[in-house]
Computed example of a mutant assay.
Amino acid sequence: MSNRELTHHSINYVELPAADLAATKLFFSGVFNWQFTDYGPDYTAFSNATINGGFYHAPLVSDAAVGAALVVIYSADLEQTQHAVEQAGGQVCKAIFSFPGGRRFHFKEPSGNEFAVWSDKGSAEI
């Protein structure tokens, strides 16, 4: 865990499954500049993502369609981030759409976990 000041009752850490830890690490380090520390062959912790967390080796996926929590990442340039996600092997599962407060898209990373990226920059109709 980081040396950041902890705030009482704040979300401090999140853990997600990953069928392919190596591909997941490569994806998030390449697209979002997350840093990883391995703790054995079945767990890797990430940092440099505002909140810290980790991926544990498992044949499961986190998918909002079946009730899993959705991790949402902020981007100052939504289209550029979507392009980077696609170039790194992520699959867009919900194209950019508007919602009150901004726009976002959803994607699945190489292990199949669903994430979303949102931006409050620009309000172009998609």
Rank of each mutant, 00 (worst) to 15 (best):
W118H: 08
N3G: 12
N113W: 03
K121Q: 01
H8C: 04
Q87L: 07
F97E: 09
L60W: 09
C93G: 11
A49N: 14
E15Q: 12
S10E: 11
S75K: 14
N3A: 14
E114D: 02
P110H: 09
I73C: 00
E109Q: 11
P100R: 03
E5Y: 13
G89E: 06
Y13L: 09
V61N: 00
T37W: 00
S62E: 04
G53D: 09
I73Y: 10
A64V: 08
N33R: 07
V31F: 14
G112A: 00
I73W: 04
E114K: 02
S111C: 03
F99Y: 14
L21K: 10
G40A: 08
Y13D: 12
Y43P: 15
P100V: 01
T81W: 02
A22P: 03
P41Y: 12
L26F: 08
H9V: 06
A68Y: 07
G112M: 00
T81C: 08
N33S: 08
L6F: 08
Q91L: 15
F107R: 09
G102K: 02
E15W: 01
G67C: 09
L78T: 03
Y39L: 06
G112F: 05
L16T: 00
F107H: 11
S62H: 01
L70Q: 14
G112L: 05
F46D: 10
S2K: 07
F99G: 00
V92C: 13
V72S: 15
S119V: 00
H57F: 04
S47R: 14
H8W: 11
D63V: 03
F97W: 09
L26M: 05
N48T: 14
I11Q: 10
P59E: 12
P17K: 03
S98A: 09
I73P: 00
L70W: 15
G53E: 07
E125M: 03
